[in-house]
């Protein structure tokens, strides 16, 4: 436990110290929310547009923090030899990986709180009622996307390519899953792609809790899809994840 907290403290220090990455990972969804929130108005599906957008941005934030953040950070550390270095120390591998997950969880929790604050202040969005359910959803979202991030880390070969590959996955996924607005009017084949993506179901669950007042478990199908993606991510990571630089 002592070593876990020690590592977590430094993970947080490292995250906030690298300002460019912290801005991209943490600040970007907030910025996007303010921009898009100022453009959309009226109602979507009977809910205030800004509230629907807020849910979309929580989804985007989860993917950005846990998926993009994990993949970019770990690829960089691997290619600079930091992961290899850590493997020679007594720090257990699972503690290291668990700390990157919990560190993402902390960042994403703060992100969610700030998104609600921005929504409240700028767009008079209501504050969430089911805070506990929402907290569990945040944990689930972080886990799903961190698992996928770990798998993608294992597939990316170079530090230079990492943010390109990650964004190539992240932005279309966010678009197709409805982060930036409802997908109802998208062409059928685009919606079909969205239908298999985990982010769509994460957004659906958060929307149910925040706007519908549903319990977390009221959408078992959505939770099932996310569980499948998590399992898939872990399998790929177990098969392909490496601690040593790939450039050779």
């Amino acid at each position: 436990m002592r070593i876990f907290l020690h590592q977590l403290r430094f993970e947080q220090l490292l995250f906030w110290r690298s300002r460019e990455a912290a801005f991209f990972i943490f600040g970007f969804p907030l910025l996007l929310f303010v921009l898009l929130g100022s453009v959309y108005n009226g109602k979507i599906d009977g809910y205030p547009a800004s509230s629907v957008l807020l849910v979309g941005m929580i989804g985007y934030g989860a993917a950005n923090t846990a998926f993009a953040g994990t993949a970019i950070i770990l690829v960089n550390r691997r290619e600079y030899g930091i992961l290899k270095r850590i493997r020679s120390t007594p720090l257990p591998a699972w503690v290291y990986l668990a700390c990157t997950l919990v560190s993402s969880l902390l960042v994403f929790t703060l992100e969610t709180v700030l998104l609600f604050a921005v929504g409240r202040i700028f767009f008079s969005a209501q504050l969430p009622g089911h805070v506990a359910s929402l907290a569990v959803a945040v944990l689930i979202g972080t886990t799903v996307f961190a698992a996928i991030g770990l798998a993608v880390t294992a597939l990316i070969r170079s530090a230079e390519g990492s943010s390109a590959v990650v964004n190539f996955i992240l932005l279309p996924m966010a678009f197709l899953s409805g982060s930036f607005g409802p997908t109802r009017r998208y062409p059928t084949f685009l919606r079909a792609i969205g239908d298999v993506l985990p982010l769509k179901y994460f957004i659906e669950v958060v929307k149910g809790i925040y706007l519908g007042g549903h319990a977390l478990w009221s959408r078992p199908g959505a939770l099932g899809v996310m569980a499948a993606w998590t399992a898939g991510g872990i399998v790929v990571a177990r098969l392909r994840f490496g601690w040593e630089p790939r450039e050779r």
Partner: peptide, 15 residues
């Protein structure tokens, strides 16, 4: 009980 210096390893730039 071992200490390792690798041939190439960059320490964290921001610490």
């Amino acid at each position: 009980r071992i200490g390792v210096v690798l041939q190439s390893a960059e320490p964290w730039p921001n610490l």
